[in-house]
Amino acid sequence: MAGLELLSDEGYRVDGRRAGELRKVRARMGVFAQADGSAYIEQGNTKALAVVYGPHEMRGSRSKALHDRALVNCQYSMATFSTGERKRRPHGDRKSSEMTLHLKQTFEAAILTQLYPRSQIDIYVQILQADGGNYCACVNAATLATIDAGIPMRDYVCASSAGFIEDTPLADLNYVEEAAGGPQVALALLPKSDQIALLEMNSRLHEDHLEQVIEAASKACKDVYAVLDQVVRDHVHEVTTLLGE
C-alpha cells in the first residue's frame, strides 16, 4: 500500500488515534432471552454477537463427553454482509475453523470446566461487521456472554491485537492497518493474573521488537478489561436492584 501513511509524523494513525489508543468500545449483556447467556459488542466498526448455551447434557455423540470436566464447544461465523464484498461462507471454511479452534483453546483456559463433569458448554459467536480485530471482538463478546450465563471463570478473558509499523507498536488494529500486511499479534489475556490464554502472530517480526509489541497488546487488553468490567458491574447492579429481595 504505497502512498498510504499509517502513522503520521505527528503520531496519528489513519483513523486519528494515537499509537496506544483503543477504538470506542460499546457492549451490552443479556440481549437474547432464549439463550443462557448472550452479549453484543462494538469495537469501533467491528461488531460481534455471542451466545452461550449450557452447561447442558451432551448433544450429538455422547462418547465425546469427558468424565472429569465439561466440553467447551465453540463456533465462529461471519455474517454474509459483514465484509465489504458480500460473500457466502458455508460452515467449515479454513479461516473460521481455525478461529473456532482458537476460541475453544482460549475459553478452556478460562472457564472452570472441572465443575461440570459430563456436560457441554456451547459458545457461538458471529461477526456482524468486520473491521479488523475479529478474533479480539469475539473473545470479548464471548467473555461477557459467559459471565451473563453464570458460568464460573477464573477471570475475564480480554483480547486485543497489536501491530508494528514504522518502529512503533500500534494497539487494536483496524481493517486498513491489518490489510497493510505488517506483523500482527493477537493476545488473549487474563488481566488480573497477567496470564496469557492465547498468543498468535502472523508474518515475521524481529525478536528485539516482540517484547514491545506484546507490551502494547497487553496494555490494550487491560484497557478493554476496564470497559468490560464496567459493563458487567452496571448490569449486575441494575438486575440486583430490580430483583430487590
Binding site: 471463570m153 493474573s193 436492584t241
Partner: peptide
C-alpha cells in the same frame, strides 16, 4: 433505566469474576 426510579437501597457486596 428503571433503577433510577426505584429506591437506591443496594448495600450488597457485588463482585465480578476474578
Amino acid at each position: 433505566l428503571v433503577v433510577q426510579s426505584l429506591a437506591q437501597g443496594s448495600d450488597k457486596h457485588l463482585v465480578a469474576p476474578g
